[in-house]
Design a binder for these strands. Structure first.
Lengths: 196, 196
DNA sequence: GACCTAAGCGGAACCGATTCCGCTTACGGA
DNA sequence: TCCGTAAGCGGAATCGGTTCCGCTTAGGTC
């Protein structure tokens, strides 16, 4: 037989490394939970996890990477619900209805995790992970609910409005309530899915 | 006579301070022009302007404040054009047309100044300066061109799509051309201003 | 012109993120 | 079980942004 293509991946994480990853995630999780990520330094996390700072960086790349890992944990449920959960978030109802549900659900998620999302943002370069998932999700729904629009572009645009920084600005800078933002989203989705 | 209301403001900038402000802006301007702001440190600027770093911070608050000052210079023309320039950017044509012109003009501006805009962003808390101007501009145009929508919310949403970070992501992360983004904006504006 | 005082100044000190590098150790192969 | 080696480790060093603070001086007042 030929070799399998080499994305058979790098070596595989050593046992002690995996243990440290867990330790770090756990320690970081509680520190963040009690003080908010902005008040927690990388050294705080290293000390609490009983590892050197070098280890943090080896495992997670940088501060944003650590935030991202933390966030991912707390967000998987939502992602799964989109794909295979019960309607209207999951499949089984018209796309327009799922777009509304997505907005409400996502706004809820931001409301709780905005700080972490902002901290994780620098890592979320283009196509990486979650963002791509959300974009694809929206793109598919839009293709069905608003066939007269460029689904890809529109999906990215809608996502821009759900950017955590933007959200915090509207929420606290401009004083919108969560409810108002949900209504705003709904109105926008309605306007976009209306047939020309 | 009574005193004028006290926003007759604080003392007034001392002559040497004003001189330093100019020196700093000039030095920073050329450094940024030749290397891009990301490659220029506050100390670089201080050295080039022959002042202490403390002076930078006294004048501009922080790095973002300096970037903002730099940006403002290079952006005033556009702001003026919106308010009192010739149509279609300025007044004199239907609001929908001006919305299209705004998008094209602003995308052009971002294309050139995205780096600076990103660096200045942390300063641009809620209502401060430019952002508020753009939001108001859009709000007024939308009130006329899309009376069936919540103008304030929609204005903020449209602005979110023009966020410099978002722009860079679409431009370089996702590979959109400037032209495609302009077309996307146009399509979106059309969809929103279409009567229900 | 001398004096006063708050504005302004410079640069050392501080702080947190990130990098570097010499030492340690897990673990696959013999 | 013993070895070799690359993965992993810790923490000192570096880097840039920001703050602090004792000294200087512009520019009113007398």
């Amino acid at each position: 037989m030929f070799e399998l293509p080499q994305f058979q991946e790098q070596p595989r994480e050593r046992a002690d490394a995996a243990r440290n990853r867990e330790r770090i995630l756990t320690a970081a999780g509680s520190l963040v939970a009690e003080s908010g990520i902005d008040a927690v330094s990388m050294e705080d996390v290293a000390k609490a996890a009983c590892v050197g700072t070098g280890t943090l960086y080896r495992r997670f790349g940088d501060r944003a990477g650590l935030a991202y890992a933390l966030l991912d944990d707390q967000t998987k449920d939502f992602q799964n619900a989109l794909i295979s959960g019960p309607p209207p978030l999951g499949p089984g109802v018209p796309a327009a209805e799922r777009l509304h549900a997505f907005g409400a659900g996502f706004l809820d998620l931001i409301e709780t995790h905005a700080e972490l999302m902002v901290a994780a943002a620098p890592t979320v370069k283009e196509s990486s992970g979650v963002l791509a998932l959300y974009a694809t999700h929206l793109r598919i729904l839009l293709a069905e609910a608003a066939p007269h629009l460029d689904a890809r572009y529109t999906a990215e645009s809608l996502l821009a409005m759900l950017d955590p920084k933007q959200h915090l600005r509207m929420r606290h800078g401009l004083g919108y309530s969560l409810d108002q933002l949900v209504r705003g989203w709904d109105q926008l989705v309605d306007a976009l899915t209306r047939r020309p």
